[in-house]
């Protein structure tokens, strides 16, 4: 028991010390750049100054962070549910796939920042246009990854299912959907980071709250420490949401190949002949 948890901790340390060291190194570089006067303090504030401000203004930042987080999560959840439903429909019917695909692609390539003002005109200054932009940003990767996942099932498995006579619904629930989950999670992880961007873009265009607003205000006031603080908090929100999904994936798909660690490289490829 003790050795097992000990091993686990050693594993965590092993995985995290390198990125942590890189982060620390970057902080040091940032610090050096500012203290040596290489860059003017009003252009790049020192890390100390930035973190001091974050502590001083924590309640202000926290309030706006909460707003952006809610918009992001709402947009992400809607995009996730819609994305999976659209993907299922596309896999079930080739007609739906060929009909919907061009429109999906079109919706994806439209620059979101360019259509965001339109949503403000339509939906006002509330949280709705931000959620819509977040949904638009996050939707596409979910659809694409889910379609790929649902199509990744072996034909042999589907033929077997046919001889078992379970029908399309049971085949979907017991075979197709679980088989698609690793792909789906890959899409969701991309989607959640894009949802943060979507929410912030929505806030840029017209809003009086949220991290996008904080950044824009700080920019207008030439308040670079606050600008940096806003950027850092926004990134942290994205990273935390990503890690949350990663954790959910590990809990839900313990069997998934990418989680098998060393076994993947030392065993012959599964299913190879």
């Amino acid at each position: 028991m003790d050795t097992v948890s000990g091993d686990r901790w050693r594993g965590v340390v092993e995985r995290t010390w390198r990125p942590a060291a890189l982060m620390a190194a970057l902080l040091v570089v940032w610090h050096l750049v500012t203290v040596t006067g290489l860059v003017e303090a009003y252009l790049v504030p020192s890390p100390a100054r930035t973190f001091e401000l974050m502590i001083d203004k924590w309640s202000y930042l926290w309030g706006h962070t909460w707003v952006t987080t809610v918009e992001t999560v709402l947009g992400f959840v809607i995009a996730g549910v819609l994305g999976v439903l659209v993907a299922v429909a596309m896999v079930c019917s080739r007609t739906i796939e060929s009909t919907a695909y061009p429109i999906l692609l079109f919706a994806q390539v439209i620059p979101k920042i360019a259509i965001a003002p339109l949503f403000v005109v339509w939906l006002g200054f509330g949280f709705e246009p931000k959620v819509v932009v977040a949904v638009l940003m996050a939707f596409f990767p979910v659809v694409i990854s889910t379609v790929t996942g649902l199509k990744s099932v072996d034909t042999e498995m589907l033929e077997l299912a046919a001889t078992m006579g379970g029908g399309p619904v049971k085949t979907f629930v017991k075979i197709r959907f679980p088989a698609a989950l690793p792909h789906l999670f890959a899409g969701l992880k991309v989607a959640v980071t894009l949802a943060v961007t979507g929410a912030v873009v929505g806030e840029f265009v017209g809003s009086n709250e949220g991290l996008g607003y904080v950044i824009l205000q700080a920019n207008g006031n030439m308040d670079t420490p606050m600008l940096f603080a806003g950027l850092i908090v926004t990134s942290v929100v994205g990273v935390l949401l990503f890690l949350l999904l990663d954790l959910a994936e590990q809990l839900m798909l313990p069997w998934h190949a990418s989680r098998r660690g060393a076994a993947v490289t030392t065993l012959p490829a599964k299913g190879g002949s």
Partner: peptide, 12 residues
């Protein structure tokens, strides 16, 4: 009952 060359098992 059908058996293929690949076992075609559900990984999970």
């Amino acid at each position: 009952g059908f058996v293929f060359q690949r076992a075609a098992l559900l990984e999970w």
